[in-house]
Design a protein around this nucleic acid. Structure first.
Lengths: 191, 191
DNA sequence: TTGCTAAGCGGAGGGGCCTCCGGTACGTTG
DNA sequence: CAACGTACCGGAGGCCCCTCCGCTTAGCAA
C-alpha cells in the first residue's frame, strides 16, 4: 500500500534502522543463514526493534539488495531499446542467471519472497519487466503471442536454483536455451 | 551406500520406527509444518530417537511418501511402452504436475530434497526415469538429441512450486506446454 | 523549561530444531 | 537363568525464531 518503505520519523529510529542494515549487510555477506539474534546484538538493538523494522528475514534481505534488484528490472527496457526483442530477452535472462550465480544464497531468498506475495513491491515490477519483453517479442513475431509474464518468471526462477558450484554456468546456459526455445514462435529453420 | 534404509534389528527399535511413521503420517497430512517435537511426543519416544531414525525432517517425509514417488518413477517406462515418446513425456509430466498439486506441501519438501543430494536414493531414479523418456524421444526424432535429464528435471521442478490455490491447474498446463516446446526437436508444422 | 504523549524500544517467554551422551534393556552366550 | 556387551533410548541443553507488552524518550507545545 505504501510505496516507500515507511520512513520512520524519529531520529533514534532512523539510526537504529541504519545500524541494523550495516551490520546485516556484513553478516549476510558471510552467510545467508546469519542469525537475526546475532545481528540485533551486534547492532546494539533489541530483537524486537529488528523485527519492527523488518518484519521478516526476507524483508531485511530484500531491503539490502533493493538496488541490485531495481537495476535488474531497469535493464529490461534498456536492452529492448538497443536490441531486437528476442536478443533483449536472451541478454536479460543471462543477466538474471548471472546475478543468481553471484549471490546464490540471496537469490534463494528473493525467489522465496517473489513466490510468496502476488502483487508485492518486488514481484510486481519483475513481472512487469518481463511483460514488456514478451510483448515486444510477440508484436515482432519472434515470440509466441499471449505469453503470461508470470509463467515466464516461474520458469526463470529455476535459474536462481542452480548451484553455481556444480557446473552452474554451463547448466544455466543450457536451461536458458531450452526456456527460450519454448517461448519462441518458431524454431530456427534448421540445425 | 546402503540400498535399503538400514533396517534396525532390535524389536523395540522397529516398533519405535513404526510408531513414529504412523504418527507422522497423520501429523503431516494436517500440516507439513508439523513439529517434530510434537510427533516424537505423540509417538511416545524421545526426540533423540526420532532423529536417530530420520536424521532430517526431509528424510522422514520422503519415507512417508516413498511409495508415491516410486509409483511416479515406475510410470515413466510404462507410459513409454504404450505411447510414442513425446506423448509419454507429456503424460508423465502431467502426472508429476498433478501429484504436485495434490500434495503441495509435500512436493515442496521433495523438491528441496532432490535439489540437495546429487546421487541420493530419490534423485537418482527420478533422473533415470527422465533419461529413458528423453532418450526415446531423441532416438525417434521428436525431441532434441543430447538433452541432459538433470536439466529437464530442473525445469520440471517448477511444477512443484505452482500454488494450486492460484489457478494451479491451468498454469501448470501452460508452463508444461512451454517446457515441452523447448525440448522438441521441431515445432508442429503449422498452427 | 517543563510537561505530555505516543512512537519507538527491548528483552522475557514460549516454542521449535538438533546434538550429545549417560543410561537402559534387548538378545545372546554360557 | 544369569550375566554381559552393545544397540538403542531419551531428554537436557544450547541456539534460534518470533510475539507481546510494559517501559523509555524524542519531539512538540505551552
Amino acid at each position: 500500500m505504501n510505496s516507500l518503505p515507511s520512513k520512520p520519523t524519529r531520529k533514534d529510529a532512523v539510526d537504529n534502522r541504519d545500524r541494523i542494515l550495516t551490520v546485516a549487510r556484513e553478516a549476510f555477506a558471510a552467510s545467508t543463514a546469519a542469525s537475526l539474534t546475532g545481528i540485533a546484538k551486534k547492532a546494539g538493538v533489541g530483537i524486537g526493534t529488528l523485527y519492527r523494522h523488518f518484519p521478516t528475514r526476507e524483508a531485511l534481505i530484500l531491503e539490502l539488495y533493493r538496488h541490485d534488484i531495481q537495476q535488474l528490472i531497469d535493464l529490461a527496457p534498456a536492452l529492448l531499446a538497443e536490441n531486437p526483442p528476442l536478443t533483449a530477452l536472451r541478454l536479460w535472462f543471462d543477466e538474471v542467471a548471472r546475478y543468481g550465480r553471484l549471490k546464490y544464497g540471496v537469490a534463494e531468498v528473493i525467489h522465496a519472497a517473489t513466490n510468496a506475495g502476488v502483487d508485492d513491491e518486488y514481484y510486481g515490477p519483475f513481472v512487469a519487466a518481463i511483460g514488456v519483453l514478451v510483448d515486444a517479442g510477440a508484436a515482432e513475431g519472434s515470440l509466441k503471442p499471449g505469453l503470461d509474464p508470470e509463467d515466464v518468471l516461474l520458469q526463470l526462477s529455476v535459474l536462481w536454483r542452480i548451484d553455481p558450484a556444480r557446473d552452474g554456468e554451463a547448466r544455466a546456459a543450457r536451461v536458458l536455451g531450452l526456456i527460450i526455445d519454448g517461448l519462441r514462435a518458431a524454431p530456427p529453420a534448421s540445425g
